[in-house]
Design a protein around this nucleic acid. Sequence first.
DNA 1: AAACAGTATTGACGTGGATCAAAGGGCTCC
DNA 2: GGAGCCCTTTGATCCACGTCAATACTGTTT
Lengths: 244, 244
Amino acid sequence: MKSVIPVTVVDIKVACSQCNLRELCLPFGLDPNEIDQLDELVGSRRKIKRQQHLYRSGDNFEAIYAIRAGSFKTDVILEDGRDQVTGFQMTGEVLGLDGISTEHHSCNAIALEDSEVCVIPFNRLEELSREVESLQHQFHKIMSREIVRDHGVMMLLGSMRAEERLAAFLLNMSQRFTARGFSPSEFHLRMTRDEIGSYLGLKLETVSRAFSRFQEEGLVAVQQKHIRILDTPGLKRLLNHHAA
Amino acid sequence: MKSVIPVTVVDIKVACSQCNLRELCLPFGLDPNEIDQLDELVGSRRKIKRQQHLYRSGDNFEAIYAIRAGSFKTDVILEDGRDQVTGFQMTGEVLGLDGISTEHHSCNAIALEDSEVCVIPFNRLEELSREVESLQHQFHKIMSREIVRDHGVMMLLGSMRAEERLAAFLLNMSQRFTARGFSPSEFHLRMTRDEIGSYLGLKLETVSRAFSRFQEEGLVAVQQKHIRILDTPGLKRLLNHHAA
DNA sequence: AAACAGTATTGACGTGGATCAAAGGGCTCC
DNA sequence: GGAGCCCTTTGATCCACGTCAATACTGTTT
């Protein structure tokens, strides 16, 4: 898999103003002059290899991270060893917001593939967002969006059946790939069935069976991690027409 | 029930600086001078009767709300009618953060008893938090805390059994009552079994049975909505010693 | 004080997803 | 390019919780 990832030349500083993710990321809504100020703040970039931690639960919180390339999962681990994936993050999305509240991270962030993040020192971000109104507002929107997303996951975990959960997951992935200029109907999942299951509150076998069922019904074509969505309206119908 | 709520004299302006909730609320960490500035911003107070909405999903977002008296639930409703309680909020906690991301609220906030909130116009809050560093930071902490809380709920919904969920819920309520100067072991729940069930991803019958089981085992004394916790360590044991 | 409606408890039974188990396939790493 | 391991699929069985149903309680209304 490593060989599929195009090599990024780190030495060349890729400024926010040049970044093709700026419409999805923190710079959204800033004017060119403001983006330059943000650029100065984004001190460094960090490469994280597949399966490595960007941060761990308990680590001191110092920065938030914008994903420049690759993807991550976040998870929470209980004392007795049980763990739960709380989210999957793609390029342009921000990681680390959980750490603000206690100055320590409360979850783990792990790369699903070789990845790269922009490090945004948090005290400097607060400083700049006191000066730049649009940055302040965009940051608040990003935090709020995370809260809204979490509510959606609660809905999913609390009141949907297994196949509904998987349908919602696939539609969500499709929508996020689309926003990044990729195909809405064909994509490659970077996480395992076990990780999907953990996120959806299901066992990996149940996820696998649901995929098989979707395939039988002609909703998707599944080949391991390659997904082709054949019937988007069909998947949406699964979600809304709850036969209860 | 209405008659139990002490009458609050609205005409007397209760400033943040005088409010006994300030340690739990937005003013936390501000110096007296800064609190005065916050006071000017908190334009008005609003009384919400039991079962009434503070805001509805879809409403324009203009302000966040700090609970001065009473308590609320928030819920999300799907097109097909299914709904899910996403949280219960007590005095000093902040409502409405979900609205920042799209300028529209994405959930409903409903009073569980006759309640009162402080209305904090959001654009003015952003304005002031550009000037007052400690306010900015406290606000960010509050948003982050909500994200961390949501992750805990995901953990609960995704990987705990019914009795573990209820134990976690009771311990959480106990801890929050304690923080407000009430008894850690004896309190009155303002929500129904159905609402608890919705929050915990369980049916009301399952909640009721779990309560009965806890009672049989001497963990709690339950009398309708009156709860007396008899064995806190026992409840905690239920959570951590997962017999899987 | 009686009547009501909403809330709670408890029992009997059904089922969706978990668990246990085994085999096959595809990555990854050397 | 091959060996090993992790990941995935599929089947058989089990059980926790949901569903359906009946009864009882509590606080509110009149």
